[in-house]
Design a binder for these strands. Structure first.
Length: 155
DNA sequence: GCCAACGTTGGC
DNA sequence: GCCAACGTTGGC
């Protein structure tokens, strides 16, 4: 059982959008970075929990919690010529990109990026490192506990 | 809109 | 295999 942080642009899919989806579940498609893909392929297990992080928006930060509802399988958008995620170099025989499905667990009070930065206990978090662009990052269990108990729990 | 940081591409 | 050029991310 691992913990993660997964970035989503709320203009594309916010935590409220996810909560409104059928089954409150969505395919985490569109990841086009090998490191993030490998996390999904090699390490994500059913039931893993992740912070749902809003990025590239007015108030970046943690907005909710999701769980892995299906293990990694080929990302359909890589084969869809009409998709902005289409990849001509991928093939059905040897798909380059994968995604998991995630399911809504709960919404949280927004824990802003600026707030996360205020806590020394979190200073090693990947998402707080300078120019951290990786859309999926592992979260240390101690960091997970700190955020859920100290920040979300008291908010 | 700016810009720093980073990943990818492709020529050599 | 190097590395410059380019594209993207994402906070501000």
């Amino acid at each position: 059982m691992r913990y993660w942080l997964m970035k989503s642009e709320p203009d594309d899919c916010s935590i409220d959008d996810l909560a409104a989806m059928p089954g409150q579940t969505v395919a985490w498609y569109g990841v086009r970075n090998y490191q993030a893909r490998n996390f999904m392929r090699d390490q994500m297990q059913l039931g893993d929990l992740a912070f749902f992080y809003h990025s590239s928006c007015a108030e970046p930060g943690i907005a909710g919690i999701v769980e892995v509802a299906r293990r990694a399988y080929p990302d359909a958008t890589q084969f869809d010529v009409s998709s902005r995620f289409f990849d001509a170099k991928s093939s059905h025989e040897n798909p380059r990109w994968l995604n998991v499905d995630v399911r809504f667990v709960r919404k949280t009070p927004l824990i802003a990026l600026a707030e996360l930065r205020r806590h020394a206990a979190l200073e090693q978090m990947r998402v707080l490192q300078k120019a951290s662009r990786l859309s999926i990052t592992p979260v240390d269990p101690a960091e997970w506990r700190y955020i859920t108990e100290q920040l979300i729990g008291s908010a």
